[in-house]
Amino acid sequence: MTTLNVNVHYVTRVEGHGDIVVDVKNGQIKECRFEVVEAPRFFEAFVRGRPYYELSHITSRICGDSAITSRF
């Protein structure tokens, strides 16, 4: 029976950091995890206390490339 240990230390060709961990023992999946190892930016916390008209401009930087379309 298959015993497998997959440890993808960061997935490529995607936006965002993620690792994949798969642990297979005797054909049985014991563990299968997608780990998000990205440094958090804390948007929910730092928008507190900002002027309301800024919020769409700041939160659209969750993905800055599409900042303008996100604003709408």
Binding site: E15, G16, E38, R61, C63, G64, D65
Partner: peptide, 9 residues
């Protein structure tokens, strides 16, 4: 590092 990776895009 801490970013949206949009500049790389």
């Amino acid at each position: 590092f801490a970013c949206c990776e949009g500049c790389q895009l």
